[in-house]
Design a protein around this nucleic acid. Structure first.
Lengths: 347, 347
DNA sequence: CTGTTAGCGCTTTCAC
DNA sequence: GTGAAAGCGCTAACAG
């Protein structure tokens, strides 16, 4: 029997089972007020007819879609895909579906995606990375859909957010080198106009130097786009300095791997000649030689906590705006020397 | 004025603009049969009220959601995320939205996701990688929703699919080594029970040897799970052979990078001592030292072509079942020696 | 060009 | 426990 073509509805099930639509609806939704015998009969008919509930109709009638929208800047970025894993696991647990959308780092597309998601009547929205702009805020203001930011934040903490302390993480990485006796510590960072990552991390680096009376030297600063090539480029120019740095804090693992290769291609040794520390601890950090020391960011947890927060929010619980800060740590591998093994090569 | 709380509908717009719902619907949907003046007025009211069309209601009424579901085995796999890019670009072009779902390689979840997507009334379905099982086929049989497979296929070519010739690609890689004078060519592959990738690639390798009268040696075969660690492991055991291979075909780039590191950690040189060739040409292939030679698979195009095919299918055009095969090639970098530079070290 | 009128398939009071 | 009936917000004939 070919079940193609004819869509079978709750009405069909009701008719065949000899009950009302309401009853069928009750058993489909696990409502307890149904006599076991009736339930069994209905379930049988559902099976027999191959009935599949229409989520669109349900969404319209109940004004709930059990769906949350996730806007992600770049799906091929390991950081975000790991965060997404955390989101998905918790969403599955609470029986929410995810609509994952890729903004591809384009602002226009970002706004458009949020609009589309709202049109689709998602019950909640997770916005990852990227900059939250005026435009977004205006959209959020005019909707009742709960929004949680992940790995980004907004001025005035107007929205709930989950992230780490970017300033402190960069500070910690820099201090590690200072404690190792380094004086010439270079930085390969992100655009300083990026108020979420680039700038606060830069300031963290700077503060570390200041607090330890190390002179800040702007020649040791390079700005990349967080990707491999820019890390390679940046490191290459650093290597051409007359006074080559003895260590470098790189504010993304991908750039750090690029930097490592630039150093290696230059004939220098890691960590003997130059030590490198990355940021995020994505898989590639342990798939490169030497193994990359890096700031360990709890990516999965970022997603999981955010999704958990969102479920509370969607269920009407009060949710604080402002950031929930998750802990980070330093994951030391072989692109840095163990502390205590300092030789005297930095003047 | 706070637009929160009250949902404003097409009816509100109609009332304020002094027209009928039908007219509002027409302008929202870009129907040309509206007097410019009327259109303008309606548009004004929409703007003023901040009206946002309800896609759920529209979906119910029109029986079209302009949404396609994409089931992907692993979002953190670079291969699939690149394919997804291709899908997204074409989808955007044809004004379709994407619901991206991650099955996490779990079969049960795969089936469940397909069901959910169907409940959500997607207009089409793209199924990436993974094995298409009986269970799926049964679901597909009972629905009118067009399905296109990407980077996988099914027995009897029962469904339209887009992919490359796996057999030939592995064959080509192997032949490259044979032409380079190699006799001891190892293979790090995937499970032979995997009829989509593992097995056909293995057969491609085997055929290449056979056709060139090179003895097949099962000691040179290792099976991994396509990931870094398994590549490292596999290569390590290959390295401990009394008769170490002089070249190795690795059926995923991640495993290939693992293999490279195993070789390097073993103190051997690439490509001088051992040549390595990978598979897929994901970004990491050009972010490793030495740069990885690999089978260049048109990942983006796989996605783009599949999505294009699906749009045709959704628009009622006849679509052939069976695979559309896209071309692949060898991308030679520095983990292999240039052909013609053969020295005599293979006996 | 524009309005009227049925539904789309389901949930949800409100009765019984 | 179960049913009847009123929508949810929108589209799509059909009329005019």
């Amino acid at each position: 029997m070919d079940k193609k073509k004819e869509t079978i509805t709750i009405y069909d099930v009701a008719r065949v089972a000899g009950v009302s639509m309401a009853t069928v609806s009750r058993v489909v939704n696990g409502n307890s007020n149904v006599k076991p015998a009736t339930r069994k009969k209905v379930l049988g008919v559902i099976e027999q007819l191959g009935y599949r509930p229409n989520a669109v109709a349900r969404g319209l009638a109940s004004k709930k879609t059990k769906t949350v929208g996730v806007v992600i800047p770049d799906i091929s970025n390991a950081f975000y895909s790991e965060v997404t894993r955390g989101i998905e696991d918790i969403a599955t647990m609470y029986r929410y579906n995810i609509i994952l959308c890729n903004s591809d780092l384009q602002q226009e597309r970002e706004t458009q995606l949020i609009e589309t998601l709202l049109e689709k009547q998602v019950d909640g929205l997770l916005f990852l990375g990227g900059n939250v702009r005026e435009e977004h805020l205006r959209i959020y203001e005019h909707t009742n859909v709960p929004v949680v930011l992940v790995a980004t934040k907004v001025e005035d903490n107007a929205l709930p957010a989950v992230g780490i302390d970017q300033h402190e993480a960069a500070y910690d990485a820099t201090v590690h080198f200072i404690q190792g006796g380094h004086k010439k510590i270079a930085l390969i960072g992100g655009p300083l106009t990026d108020l979420v990552k680039g700038y606060p991390r830069y300031i963290g680096y700077k503060h570390a130097l200041e607090e330890h009376q190390i002179e800040f030297d702007e020649h040791l600063i390079r700005i990349g786009d967080y990707r491999y090539d820019s890390g390679y480029q940046a490191m290459s120019t650093l290597l051409s300095l007359t006074d080559v740095p003895t260590s470098v804090v790189v504010l993304s693992d991908e750039m750090a791997v690029g930097a490592i290769h630039a150093i290696l291609d230059n004939g220098k040794k890691i960590p003997e000649d130059i030590e490198v520390i990355g940021y995020n601890n994505i898989p590639i950090a342990s798939q490169v030689r030497p193994l990359l020391s890096t700031v360990d960011v709890p990516m999965y947890d970022l997603g999981a906590v955010a999704m958990r927060l969102l479920t509370k929010y969607m269920h009407g619980e009060e949710v604080q705006t402002g950031q929930v800060t998750l802990p980070h740590s330093l994951k030391l591998r072989s692109s840095t020397r163990p502390l205590g093994s300092i030789e005297g090569e930095q003047s």
